[in-house]
Amino acid sequence: MQLRDIQYVLSVSKLGSFTEAASACFVSEPALSQAISKLESQLGTKLFLRGNGRHLTLTDAGKVFVGEGENVLDAMSALKEKMEACIGNRGKHLRLAIAPYYEKCYLSNVLASFQQSHPSVTFSIIEAMSDEGERLLVMGDVDLAFVISPRKDKSIKCKCVFDDDLVLIMPRTRVFMANMPQEDRPCSMDDFRKLSSVPFIVPKQGRRLRESVMAICKSAGFRPICSIETESSSNIYELVKSGCGVGIVPSGIIKGSNCSDIFYYALKTPLSRRQLSVAYNERASSDLALNFALYAVSMR
Rank of each mutant, 00 (worst) to 15 (best):
Ile126Met: 11
Phe114His: 12
Glu40Trp: 01
Ala220His: 04
Ala112Cys: 04
Cys158Gln: 09
Met129Ala: 14
Gly51Asp: 10
Arg4Cys: 02
Gly140Lys: 06
Ser197His: 12
Val72Phe: 11
Val12Cys: 00
Met139Lys: 13
Glu238Arg: 11
Glu229Phe: 12
Met1Gln: 11
Leu271Trp: 06
Leu32Trp: 06
Gly256Ser: 09
Leu136Lys: 08
Ser155Trp: 05
Ile254Met: 07
Ile126His: 10
Gly140Glu: 08
Ser257Ile: 00
Val198Phe: 03
Pro30Gly: 10
Gln2Phe: 06
Gly252Ile: 07
Ser117Gly: 08
Leu49Thr: 12
Val142Gln: 05
Leu96Gly: 07
Gln275His: 15
Arg172Tyr: 01
Arg210Pro: 00
Ser196Ala: 13
Ala99Asp: 13
Ser232Ala: 13
Arg174Asp: 09
Leu94Ile: 14
Gly53Glu: 09
Pro100Lys: 10
Arg283Phe: 05
Asp163Pro: 01
Glu238His: 09
Val9Gly: 02
Asn109Val: 03
Asn71Pro: 00
Asp5Val: 05
Phe48Thr: 09
Asp143Pro: 03
Val278Phe: 04
Ile169Leu: 05
Ser219Ile: 04
Pro270Trp: 14
Gly206Val: 09
Gly62Ile: 01
Gly51Leu: 14
Tyr280Phe: 14
Leu137Arg: 02
Val72Trp: 07
Leu43Gly: 07
Ile169Trp: 05
Ala35Phe: 04
Lys80His: 11
Tyr102Pro: 07
Val147Met: 04
Leu94Arg: 08
